[in-house]
Design a protein around this nucleic acid. Structure first.
Length: 479
RNA sequence: CGGGGUGUGGCGAAGUUUGGUAUCGCGCUUGGUUCGGGACCAAGAGGCCUCGAGUUCGAAUCUCGACACUCCGACCA
């Protein structure tokens, strides 16, 4: 094949230009397209199918932990948004406002929800009266709007799809447990279903959600060594309850404020998957969320019996897997490249030679390794290969993370590690002062990502000021 | 929000310096031959040159403005 044609079809290599590689995949794998409003993207059927799988799997986990789905309005009156002062301060700069209904100016302008804490609070204030009404374990799937200045498909868009869980509890302890439980649900989902290792941690004071007592996050590492916040879980204490007057009568007939949490993940997860597993042939999808798990590609499909056999296999495999049979006129080579671009985990080739031997060829997306599978054992073979692929891409992502995690004691060590090995997580102690946090960022370019849970090491000196350190911090550049 | 880059059929580009009514590759349509790593032949279809104002006999090309995309920083899911 001549070079000219190659240029047309191939994507930019990730080594050459990671940012362009990313947007190439978004476009060429048919995940999303730009629209006429900056930062608002069209999520195309293939991209949306990935989101539907994410939704389905997460929703099951939410239900399993006792949550119910609800739907809150898209608009928030300005006065309602204003009730919690830290919250409004955090979000005011990026809300979109509705000022007119038709041609009539509104008496009070309405903001398009950037997040729905205030709406849930208003509702809880109206419906929570007794300890018997608690806990409230609500979740909603919706889109929210934040008027971002710079945007990128999936990673940062002005409108994005997400879920937001909002819970109200009788006690602080219960709410803290909920916050940690949901962080765990996210971490589990990322690791098991997205095959993406994450670091669970607590955000520093300066990095907390607007209005939260504490914010937790799962941080993933992308292929280029930059960090991506994959999900967050917040503990609110009774701050919102006081601002919105959410009280219940407890067992001792005493009026008490509730304790709240909220937690969310968004379509950003799709960006995370692209940048965790993709390669120079395109997307690589974890089997759990792949819209097509097996692409059946007939070879020499005009020859007698081939299409019939391919259809038979589709019927059979369709009972256990998400399967697509491509019987279009495109050449086999074209189809190979196409389904690799789309990240389909497993490709099944079936041609005259296979039919003779009562077998087919299975090819893993990540390694392109071919396996000849007897048709009698096809389901088992496919199952095994999908599981192996999942384990294998998880392992590769994990290795990338370990390889790019640098333990440092001094500022010079940080700079040296980043210079030598490229972007990654820097593990370093921190005294807890905002000054040091800022200084580290200024001088080394890495900001605090989180204070990892379960890794608190006592003692040591702050990497910046040298005083006694309170926390181990993962630092990094972030998306 | 600061600094760069880009905007021409569906996609990628040439043409802009020096104004004269748009070119190439891929894709698409039809017919035929092919088919185990991005096939080939033939005949076709398809363009508000991002948008708006201006200069000019005449603008993709010059001027001004807007919008969008994108990269590098600062901020955020």
């Amino acid at each position: 094949m001549d070079e000219q044609k190659k240029m047309v079809e191939e994507i930019t290599s990730m080594e050459e230009d990671f940012a362009k590689w990313y947007t190439d995949i978004v476009k060429k794998a048919d995940l999303a397209d730009y629209s006429s409003v900056k930062g608002c993207m069209v999520i195309r059927p293939y991209g949306y199918a990935i989101w539907e799988n994410i939704q389905r799997l997460l929703d099951a986990r939410f239900k399993a932990t006792g949550h119910e789905n609800v739907y809150m309005p898209m608009f928030i009156p300005e006065s309602l948004l204003q009730k919690e002062k830290d919250h409004v301060k955090g979000f005011a700069p990026e809300v979109a406002w509705v000022t007119h209904g038709g041609s009539e100016p509104l008496q009070e302008r309405l903001c398009v929800r950037p997040t729905s804490e205030t709406l849930f609070c208003e509702h809880y204030a109206a419906t929570v009266h007794s300890h018997r009404d608690l806990p409230k374990l609500y979740n909603q799937w919706c889109s929210v709007v934040r008027w971002e200045k710079t945007t990128r498909p999936f990673l940062r868009t002005r409108e994005f799809l997400w879920q937001e869980g909002h819970t109200a509890h009788a006690t602080a302890q219960e709410a803290v447990e909920e916050t940690e439980r949901m962080l765990g649900v996210y971490a589990d989902f990322c690791e098991q279903d997205l095959c993406m290792p994450v670091v669970k941690g607590k955000k520093t004071e300066s990095d907390k959600f607007a209005g939260a007592v504490s914010t937790y996050a799962v941080e993933a590492m992308m292929h280029d060594g930059k960090a991506l916040q994959a999900g967050t879980s917040h503990y609110f204490g009774d701050g919102f309850a006081k601002a919105f007057n959410i009280q219940y009568t407890d067992k001792n007939n005493k009026l008490t404020y509730v304790h709240q949490t909220s937690w969310g993940v968004s379509t950003r997860l799709i960006g995370a998957v692209i940048m965790s597993h993709g390669d120079n042939n395109g997307l690589v999808l974890p089997p759990a969320i792949a819209p097509i798990q097996i692409a059946i590609l007939p070879i020499a499909q005009h020859k007698p019996g081939v299409l019939e056999k391919a259809r038979e296999l589709k019927e059979r495999l369709g009972k256990s897997f998400r399967v697509k049979l491509d019987d279009s006129d495109n050449s086999p080579g074209w189809k190979f490249a196409e389904y690799e671009m789309k990240g389909v985990p497993l490709r099944l080739e079936i041609g005259p030679k296979d039919i003779e031997k009562d077998q087919c060829v299975l090819v893993r997306r990540d390694t392109r390794e071919k396996t000849f599978a007897p048709l009698s054992e096809l389901e088992a073979a496919a199952e095994k290969l999908l599981a192996e692929l999942g384990a294998s891409i998880y392992k590769a992502a994990k290795e990338n993370m370990s390889k790019r995690t640098y333990a440092c004691q001094t500022m010079d060590e940080i700079t040296a590690a980043l210079d030598k090995n490229g972007d990654g997580f820097v593990k370093a102690m921190w005294c807890g002062s905002e000054e040091c946090e800022d200084t580290v960022k200024e001088r080394t370019g890495v900001g605090s990502r989180c204070m990892p849970l379960g890794q608190e090491s006592a003692g040591g000196a702050c990497v910046c000021c040298g005083k006694a350190a309170a926390h181990l911090v993962y630092w990094g550049k972030a998306y």
